[in-house]
Design a binder for these strands. Structure first.
Lengths: 209, 209
DNA sequence: TCGGTTTTCCGAATAGTGTCAGGATTATCG
DNA sequence: CGATAATCCTGACACTATTCGGAAAACCGA
């Protein structure tokens, strides 16, 4: 067991690479189908045919449909995390809050199915694996640290913040998909929140629509 | 078409009543199953067996599974509307907002599946019928009128309100089902909102958790 | 280039789903 | 009672996710 392959497991990389590429191709196709048919509208038949396979062949790459969902869950969270990276957080707390709110609401509004997958538990028996969930926790931690840096002390305030931002995002998707009816309200909402939790140093609000 | 039943369609009431009673029995069972298995976890097999039938017999009462969902959709909205009825709206706008927010968030937090059915479009091809949707519009109108009476002028302010309340409700379900982590925040959230849109007559907020 | 191993893919099959067509059983009415 | 209508079920069909077993192909070391 120790003498078979001491230090040269390099030859199998081609196979692995090919495998991983196909896997990614399937996941990409899955995202497309999800956007078209909704999160619960995905079928393995349609997914398989989208990559020119029979449904059974998908099991070479994923142990089950839930496993596909799990990878998508991880994918989506990684994408969100990636969007946080390049952002520079302003010294002005108000500005920092605005930036992060815009980022999040925009991200959610882009893709209804992804929103359902990442933030709602709408697939009957699906629960993300610990590895995938860890990425979601990372996202949460990132958000929390930014908010703390912006001057948020209380955990309850953070909950209020997530509720406000999640509310804008979900309403945008539910009542004006593709539009900006709620996205427009972000700055006003942030001003409201900042006034309330950071003191009254916020500028007076604009009364014309 | 005019001479068949002039003024005595009374005899068929027994049949109709029986029919309607069974229909309601099915719907009640459906609510139970929904709570147990999630909105998308409902199967006609399970539903039928819950009322001691074979799945096909359900088609005597509902044209399709979507028709069942449609009736549940109407049911849920009627229930919400009914909760608005007995409520007396305070003259104090702040108090009025608090009441309506508590009502809504509590209603949502009671039942995850119902929330999904009424406010999210999470069932693949389901769209409520015009008749059922009319009830939802009625609910919306009721909320809007109460908010207007409370002194809300702008439509954007109403959107901000719904986002805030919906956010609290959805976060409560997603992150602390059965608890009160976000329900606790209602009064604070309402104070924040009232400060912002109704002027600064709101009381100072409580800084101890 | 060859032989052996591993990976990939599919055909067949199973249990589950929603739904339709037919007939039989039952309740109701004239 | 006989006619009618409502109810319920048996059988069937197309679809779903999934398992098994084998065939074809890709890859490896030689």
């Amino acid at each position: 067991m120790a003498s078979t392959t001491p230090a040269e497991p390099r030859r199998r990389d081609r196979r692995r690479a090919r495998h991983e590429a196909t896997k990614q191709e399937i996941l990409d196709a899955a995202w497309q189908l999800l956007r078209a048919d909704g999160l619960n509208g995905l079928s393995l038949r349609a997914l398989a045919h989208a990559v020119d396979m029979e449904p059974q062949s998908l099991y070479t790459y994923f142990a089950s449909k839930h496993a596909v969902y799990d990878h998508l869950f991880a994918d989506g969270n990684r994408e969100l995390l990636a969007r946080f990276e390049p952002i520079e957080i302003s010294d002005d707390p108000h500005e920092a809050l605005r930036t992060i709110a815009r980022l999040f609401v925009t991200f959610v509004a882009e893709d209804q199915a992804r929103y359902e997958l990442l933030f709602l538990r709408t697939i009957p028996d699906f629960e993300p694996s610990p590895e995938s969930y860890a990425i979601a926790v990372e996202v949460f931690a990132k958000g929390h640290s930014v908010l703390t840096a912006a001057g948020l002390g209380d955990d309850a305030d953070f909950d209020l913040w997530t509720a406000l931002v999640a509310g804008l995002a979900s309403q945008q998707l539910a009542n004006d998909p593709g539009g900006d009816r709620y996205i427009r309200l972000i700055d006003d909402a942030v001003a409201m929140f900042a006034e309330h939790v950071l003191g009254k140093q916020a500028p007076k609000r604009d009364t014309n629509a």
